[in-house]
Amino acid sequence: MNIPANTIQAVKADTKIHSELKTEFLKRYFRVVHGLFAVLLLIQFLPDKLTTETYVSYVIWFAVGVEIFTLILSGFIKKTASLNLFTDIVGFIYGLLIAWTLATAKFNLLKAALFPPPGKVFWQFISDYDKILVNIQSSVGIILQGYLLALAVAIPLGLFLGWSARLGSAATYISKFLGAIPPIVYIPYGIALLPTFRSVSVFVIFLATFWPVLAGTMSGVMNVEKKTIDSAKVLNVGKFTMMFSVILPASLQQIFIGCNQGLTVSFVLLTSAEMIGAQSGLGYYIKNYSDFGDYTRTIVGLIVVGIVIVIISFIFNSIQKYLLRWKQ
């Protein structure tokens, strides 16, 4: 029997495409992370050594949920680098859960009072759900208020001080001096001067953000290239346009460095800020329950703070990326 040459070629090409698709599929879905998922799932069926309730089903449901989410998202992420990043993070979560499950529920290696099994933490999280939501709202509110207020004051002030050469050099030293003082030191003064404890918390975040953003803006303005300013001058721009359409975007990268620093310090200070007589917030939640020795809830609080920080940082980075999209 004679098979025409082009048919053979077509079949060959077809198998080639087929095998390419297959490797592509394997690359996408056969990853270490899914192996870790299997391990995590299997160890749940080992007998518990811990005598108290371990809420195994909560870990299983959580793991299955994350796995489904991972599989679906794996189909949508196009760039290999992004897919790697994503599966690495999920892999880290699985790894942590494996170690945590084994060390607590399965082998009982750690003090149960301080280290609750993961299932119990998930269970606690779900039963405390509405309380946590309220606390997130309160904390994020304080951070946003203090942070945005600081940006609204520090950026224009930094533009003005950086632009006026004489005030600028004095302001550099003054801001260095004041910025070096940890904002918690101001708390008693805040309590004495401000009407509510909440406003003291906002004030602390404000101060934590204000100095790095001011310093960043000023150094940004002072480092704008003379060529850029000359280009604007010969276009005969007004003072306002010069400030906000030229100097501001030209120093944006440095401003963002200050904003990033401010954000980091704000998170660190959130807990301290909320310890001052606050009745809500994630810092309060953690502090309150650790004072009462409820470490399950303390860990719940720590995890939630971490998640909130990651989400805010992600949003912040997206904004930064968008505003600096012209830079390459």
């Binding site: 060529k227 000359d230 280009s231 010969v234 276009l235 005969n236 975007p249 030209a250 944006l252 012209w326």
Partner: peptide
């Protein structure tokens, strides 16, 4: 000083990189 009666082209960097 500068004036709106004159337009300028420099060798480098006449343009604003963010626009």
């Amino acid at each position: 000083g500068t004036g709106t009666d004159r337009g300028v082209v420099f060798q480098h960097y006449s343009l604003f990189p963010w626009m």
